[in-house]
Write a protein that binds this DNA or RNA. Structure first.
Length: 406
DNA sequence: CCTCCACAGGAAGCGCAGGAGT
DNA sequence: ACTCCTGCGCTTCCTGTGGAGG
């Protein structure tokens, strides 16, 4: 009697899983339908459609918080445009650039040119040459659209916008238009007037999703990402509710279900329940924080560490609330500065002036890592009260790894 | 009331790196 | 290869605000 030896990988394939197509429930997945963004899609596509009539398109500027569908919407519109010009060729081309990775004028132009001339390699050529090539490409009568995701990350944005608007004046045929995307609402203030009026020709706001909308989005994804019936409706509702409460962020909602699904597989459960979603909550939160915190400059990490250390040690001010006395982790900016100085010195890091320290605090505030309030009345004239935006213990662990890891 | 303290945030300026012009 | 220019990160200085205390 001959027994067929099973391949050792077979059992992993047959091992139960709640997923049908895990890829669909990741934040990178590009869905073909974008519920609750019909208006934005319509506005952008009608604005860009003028390139099909051989005219320059409007410059667009889109902003909204993380996970409000800015990137997905733009990619969706561009995909549709590609499909359209595949069928009925037009002198139109576009490039999508994520400026987190390509954060200077030169790198961006190079990246765009790489899309326009897939066969050529421009690495090593001068900035002026690359710019000329781009102009030549447009001057053959092409209308170009360049989408700049995370525009606020560009170091020499004024320079870039100036070059590209000037390019349009120089071109006899063709044009170059921009679609800027940002989640930093304050970054507009850092631009000079000329750049502002050029880039902000048409502005579009992406509002956060509410719990109902998130539910619809999740339901649609779950139907294709998971096996039928393997996700309880209470799990979906909870994931939507958590994400809506935090920030209206579809990315968080999707990550919650992804992690909950992975946990279900690990435990050999056949259903993703709300219990697993709740369990996934802290690990997703940590992931989000970790991503933001790790990309912070060292000095800002030190400031953040000072606040989390003081918070964790329970040294906050005692404040009187309507509920009576409560220990709350609120600090004066001066006390944080002293703690920051102490930590930096002991780690052998440079110590910045208190003026610059205040700039760091403001920046951490815009990321939501710190919550600041003007003291108003009752304390030390006008000062800033500082509170931690996230769990002190978790932040402390992450930062200690970051700062003292090596 | 005046002065001092503790701080906010604007303005000017400084050293540096890197890109452009020659 | 060299200067010149420019933007960036930062310090220094300064004006303003408002409570605390003499």
């Amino acid at each position: 009697m001959q027994q067929v030896q099973e391949n050792i990988f077979q059992k992993h394939l047959e091992k139960g899983t709640v997923f049908l197509d895990r890829n669909i429930i990741t934040p990178h997945y590009l869905p073909s339908m974008l519920p609750f963004r019909e208006k934005q899609i319509e506005l952008i596509s009608s604005g860009l459609a003028s390139v099909l009539h051989g005219k320059k398109a409007n410059n667009f500027f889109l902003y909204g918080k993380v996970g409000t569908g800015k990137t997905v919407t733009v990619k969706h519109v561009l995909n549709q445009l590609q499909e359209f010009i595949d069928k009925s060729p037009a002198m139109v081309d576009f490039a999508y650039v994520n400026c987190r990775n390509y954060n200077t004028k030169y790198k961006i132009l190079l990246k765009a040119l790489g899309k326009f001339y897939p066969k050529k390699d421009f690495i090593g050529y001068s900035s002026a040459f690359v710019y000329e090539q781009l102009l030549n490409y447009a001057n053959e009568g092409r209308h170009l659209i360049i989408a700049l995701d995370e525009v606020d990350k560009i170091r020499d944005l004024n320079e870039l916008i100036y070059s590209l608007t000037r390019a349009n004046d120089e071109l006899s045929l063709g044009s170059i238009s921009l679609v800027g995307i940002s989640n930093n609402l304050f970054f507009k203030d850092r631009l000079d007037a000329r750049t502002k009026s050029a880039l902000l020709e048409k502005e579009l706001v992406f509002p956060p999703y509410n719990a109902e909308e998130l539910k619809t989005i999740l339901n649609e994804r779950v139907a294709r990402a998971f096996r039928p019936g393997s996700v309880s409706s209470s799990a979906i509702n909870l994931a939507a509710a958590i994400a809506a409460q935090e920030s209206g962020d579809a990315r968080t909602a999707i990550m919650l279900l992804l992690r909950a699904g992975e946990e279900a597989d690990k435990m050999d459960f056949s259903e993703v329940s709300d219990v697993l979603v709740r369990k996934a909550k802290s690990s997703v939160e940590e992931e989000v924080i970790l991503n933001v915190v790790c990309t912070l400059p060292k000095q800002q990490q030190l400031v953040l560490y000072a606040v989390s250390l003081l918070t964790d040690q329970g040294k906050g001010l005692q404040r009187i609330t309507s509920m009576g006395h409560e220990q709350e982790a609120v600090f004066f900016s001066g006390d944080i500065y002293n703690e920051y100085k102490r930590i930096s010195l002991s780690l052998g890091e440079t110590v910045v002036s208190s003026r610059w320290f205040r700039e760091y605090v403001n920046e951490l505030d815009t990321y939501g890592l710190l919550l600041t309030t003007a003291s108003g009345k009752g304390v030390r004239g006008t000062t800033t009260l500082i509170k931690l935006g996230f769990d002190a213990k978790k932040l402390r662990v992450v930062l200690e790894k970051e700062l003292m890891g090596e």
